[in-house]
Simulated scan of single mutants.
Amino acid sequence: MSDTHASPFSAPRIVPKPWGRELWYAHEDRYAGKIIEVNAGFALSLQKHERKQETMYLQSGRLVYHLNGTDYEMAPGDCITINPGDVHRVEALEDAVILEVSTPELDDVIRLEDRYGRAGS
């Protein structure tokens, strides 16, 4: 029996970053899902969002999460929710894999500081 319907499956979008990469596996009208891979010793931008809310689950590795001026060490199994306006940054102490679910505004990034020359973009 052959199926004449198009496959419902799609490949994730891979977004290379100076600190690792993101795999966007969902970008829908009401939600988004990413796998964020951060290489040891690297950090994301110090940033905030105007609209985007996100929850991160650390699947593997260790990292320091900078949130509103306070540093927290995260270990596998830890979760954190970031609300609009929160100033935050992820810094990997070891290679880290983060699962992120969020509202769909993936381009809502205000970079306050960036090690890779992207601040202000």
Rank of each mutant, 00 (worst) to 15 (best):
S2W: 10
D3T: 13
T4C: 10
H5C: 07
H5P: 14
A6I: 12
A6W: 13
P8D: 04
F9Q: 06
S10R: 13
S10P: 03
A11W: 09
P12L: 01
R13M: 14
R13K: 10
I14N: 13
P16R: 02
K17Y: 00
P18D: 02
P18H: 00
W19E: 00
W19K: 00
G20P: 01
G20K: 00
G20Q: 00
R21G: 02
E22V: 05
E22M: 04
L23K: 10
Y25Q: 11
Y25G: 11
H27S: 14
E28G: 10
E28T: 11
D29A: 08
D29L: 09
R30Y: 06
I35C: 14
I35Y: 13
I35K: 06
I36W: 00
V38F: 01
N39K: 05
N39E: 11
A40L: 15
F42N: 06
A43H: 10
A43W: 01
S45H: 03
S45A: 12
S45P: 01
L46H: 06
Q47Y: 03
K48V: 00
H49N: 00
E50W: 12
R51S: 12
K52S: 04
Q53M: 15
E54H: 03
E54Y: 07
T55L: 11
Y57I: 07
Y57C: 12
L58R: 00
L58D: 02
Q59V: 08
Q59C: 10
Q59E: 12
S60T: 10
G61M: 01
R62W: 02
L63Y: 10
L63F: 06
Y65G: 06
Y65Q: 06
Y65N: 07
Y65K: 04
H66R: 15
H66K: 14
H66Y: 11
N68R: 10
N68V: 03
G69L: 02
G69A: 05
T70R: 07
D71S: 03
D71P: 08
D71F: 11
Y72W: 14
E73A: 08
P76R: 04
G77V: 06
I80Q: 15
T81I: 10
I82D: 03
I82Y: 02
I82K: 04
N83I: 15
N83S: 12
P84C: 03
G85V: 07
G85M: 04
D86L: 05
V87T: 13
H88Y: 09
R89K: 13
R89W: 05
V90H: 11
E91V: 13
A92M: 04
A92L: 08
A92T: 05
L93P: 01
E94C: 05
E94V: 11
D95T: 10
V97T: 07
I98R: 01
L99T: 12
L99F: 12
L99H: 13
E100A: 02
V101C: 04
S102G: 14
T103S: 08
T103P: 09
E105N: 15
D107C: 15
D108T: 15
D108W: 04
D108H: 02
V109Q: 13
I110K: 12
R111Q: 14
R111Y: 06
L112N: 07
E113T: 15
D114W: 14
R115G: 11
G117H: 02
R118N: 02
R118L: 04
A119I: 12
A119M: 09
A119W: 08
G120P: 09
S121P: 15
S121A: 08
